[in-house]
């Protein structure tokens, strides 16, 4: 004689705590995320077609505006101070990339002087930030 089970027991995964877990993870990511807000200087970047993506973590930003003002990681510096400031940064992170966020109308002489400072500080990896090239727009 076969016995029949009176009631069927359905297997289920309890999902009531999923929201709690999601919220916990959410809080973790909200707390740990770092939104770096750099003021730098107002610059209008030149356009280029051959632009490639750069790693943000390794980058030290050098802003140079059209008047030749230089800001390295939110610190206004003079040309002759560039080597010293950069040498300290390279000592901290030897793989540092220096990103030039320079206005397209800046005289090249200023950029050249900054690059001389970088060479002295042995910060040799540079990255010239550009905007994407739009058709019909001169440099």
């Amino acid at each position: 004689m076969a016995f029949k089970r009176a009631t069927k027991v359905g297997a289920f995964i309890p999902t009531s705590s999923m929201g709690d877990i999601a919220f916990l993870l959410l809080i973790f990511f909200i707390v740990t995320v770092v939104f770096t807000e750099e003021t730098g200087l107002v610059v209008s970047l030149p356009r280029a077609e051959a632009g490639e993506e750069g790693l943000r973590d390794m980058i030290s930003n050098v802003y140079i505006n059209e008047k030749g003002m230089i800001s390295i990681d939110d610190m206004i510096v003079r040309t002759e101070q560039v080597a010293g400031v950069m040498a300290a940064k390279v000592a901290e992170n030897p793989f540092m990339i220096v990103a030039f966020k320079t206005d397209k109308e800046t005289p090249y002489g200023v950029v050249s002087d900054v690059m001389e400072g970088l060479k002295e500080a042995n910060a040799v990896k540079v990255f010239f930030n550009t905007d994407l090239n739009l058709p019909g727009v001169a440099y």
Binding site: E52, G54, L55, R56, I59, K119, V126, F128, D131
Partner: peptide, 8 residues
């Protein structure tokens, strides 16, 4: 970050 990379 889009740009042209170079090694001095």
């Amino acid at each position: 970050e889009i740009g042209l990379s170079m090694v001095l």
